[in-house]
Write a protein that binds this DNA or RNA. Structure first.
Lengths: 199, 199
DNA sequence: CAATCTATAGTTAGCTC
DNA sequence: CGAGCTAACTATAGATT
């Protein structure tokens, strides 16, 4: 009685799959996945759907409900063709503009994605950091986060010491507001001796 | 505190959706779902994908990576048409696509503006709430601010000590798990590339 | 390769605003 | 409409046959 035979579906980055074999498999699987979605859209909504796919190797695949020809013909029907041969110039221009537009659109799209991603991160930050990291429960911090924090405090410590010296020199020392930091208690975690770290 | 606000996704029969409103909604949602799948197939496998959809009402939609024209041109090239006017299909579709693209582009543009605006606000929030007081130039801090800072550090210090004791006890090791001296190079605490969820 | 399997990532039906 | 939410439902990565 096995409990686990596979790792189940794994998350993959949205970028060209490096391994050729995997890429081919995915191409095949997902292509039929899209066909299925297309046919579902067709039956659920009474729409006509056509899908055209060219593999990287240039091989053509297609799916059509009711058929690719029907779909493409419909496009023709709804957009009467030009009869005048002088339209070629116009068409050429149109092509140029279209390509340009397409490029712009794609760029904008990716920028938009990036922006959305940034926003996600920002939102997370806002909700996480509304109190400031030093107020968060230490117990839930990871080792890495503790290390980062220690580094930050160490830097700050130096800053403050420096500033303290400045002030002491200038105004012959009353009570220093940050004496806490300057005390260097016996178990100060920020003045530890070197320790070998392995990763 | 409610536990259930929705019924979640329900299973539906694979047949034409009776209710017109639902059908329209599903048409819209699933169409964009297919577009997404198509673009994913394209990026994952380096393929060219085109999707043509005609709603029941006859309205045309399309999606193409890199562009629907490229796809349809390829089809025409690889499948010599029986009659001449098939070539017009490409042009016809191009026109249609141009209009659609223009519309989409404009929409995207305004969305982008909105997104940027939101981001601006978020950034402001982030920098105000959590930018990290330790990074600000010490010299410009007032005495009052220094006092506040000292208090915060004191608190944090206790926290860290406590945490360190915990760890020391648990792992009875002579070396502390977090060495501040032997740190890896300056990791910018605010630089983010990918969303890396910790837990 | 195509077919299966499994656990999990991703999509979406039904609602709400 | 469109955007957002939640709970389910579905697709699929990785492994096996």
């Amino acid at each position: 009685m096995e409990k686990k035979q596979t790792k189940g579906r794994q998350k993959i980055e949205m970028q060209r799959i490096p391994n050729e074999e995997d890429r081919l498999i995915t191409f095949s699987k997902r292509r039929s996945g899209i066909y299925k979605k297309a046919s579902e859209l067709s039956t659920l909504c009474g729409a006509e759907v056509g899908v055209l796919v060219f593999s990287q190797a240039g091989k053509a695949f297609s799916f059509g409900q009711p058929s690719i020809e029907t779909i493409t013909n419909k496009v023709l029907y709804e957009n009467p063709p030009p009869n005048d041969n002088t339209l070629n110039l116009v068409e050429a221009h149109r092509r140029f503009r279209l390509n340009e537009l397409h490029q712009k659109y794609s760029e904008l799209l990716s920028k938009m994605e990036v922006a959305k991603e940034r926003e996600k991160i920002l939102r997370k930050k806002v909700s996480n950091r509304s109190k400031g990291w030093w107020e968060e429960p230490i117990g839930e911090l990871s080792m890495h986060e503790l290390e980062q924090m220690a580094t930050k405090i160490q830097m700050l410590h130096k800053h403050v010491q420096h500033r303290a010296n400045e002030l002491r020199t200038r105004a012959s020392s009353s009570s220093l507001p940050f004496s806490v930091v300057n005390q260097t208690p016996p178990t100060n975690p920020f003045s530890m001796t070197k320790v070998e770290q392995k990763y």
